[in-house]
Amino acid sequence: MKEEKGFYERLAEKGVSRRDFMKYCGFLTATMGLSSSFVPKVAEVFAAPKQRPPVVWLHFGECTGCSEATLRSMYPWIDQLVLEILSIEYHETIMAAAGHQAEDVLRSAVKKHEGNFICVVEGAIATKYDGAYGKIGGRTFLEIGKDVCSKAAAVVCIGNCACFGGIQAAAPNPGGYKGVGDALGIQTVNVSGCPPNPINFVGTVVNYLLLGKLPELDWANRPLFAYGKTIHDQCPRRSHYEMDEFVEEFGSEEAAMGYCLYKMGCKGPSTYNNCPIVKFNGGTSWPIQAGHPCIGCSEPGFWDEMTPFFESQ
């Protein structure tokens, strides 16, 4: 209990009360689809464990938008995630080391924590020309992926690129890019989106730390707690759809009244995600709230399957 006290003291110093913290844990527990009896257990995960779980975060063919999204995590704040909850052993964007020193960190972390670390992968893997489209320190993404992922306790793909190939894999896909599971022939947990909401990533990791197993997954290996329902089924504009009230031009009177965006090309009916419930950037907004049709960014192959984005299918 001594550790727990220290944790809440530190939270208080940061202006976060125990009550706020428990509220967050409650929110996260609900997002994960667990009953309220799990709230104290979720809190335990964050209560400054002695040994923080090691995470190795790989970057392949991507834009770093998923890392950026994770940096925007507000509950828990990113500094808590990095300094007090997880141990981010390797992450190209935020790590201070570079060059040989950085690659040494990767090698030693994988060796030291073999079988025990969570491998987070951001980005797709090039498979054509022996993977020549993407190399780090002389090794291809394919080589690094095979080496590191096989030694992880679990592989969590963050973002559509790592999950399903993303824009790299869109036609004509000159580099032969694939999602990590496909490229390496392994089971991954796919926290999809472009970028995904950081809360769904945190929820997946907490699920693992809490229950010692990965969350229930759908047919595309996405956690059901976040990707179990369509955008359409959870959309606050749904009643307008039922009433045949549609936006047919941006900036119009109908747009100002928040009518349904289906005729503007909204892919909400065939997209599984929890954006309408959790929203982005600490619950601030999400595309349909901002009057923009959903582009289906958490679905496999959305660059090919969901385009043209502004035409209804």
Binding site: R72, F250, P287, Q289, A290, G291
Partner: peptide, 16 residues
Amino acid sequence: AKNPHLQSLAVGGVTC
């Protein structure tokens, strides 16, 4: 709408 990858621009103006 969100950051990163904002989603409120359209050819001709903004959607918000």
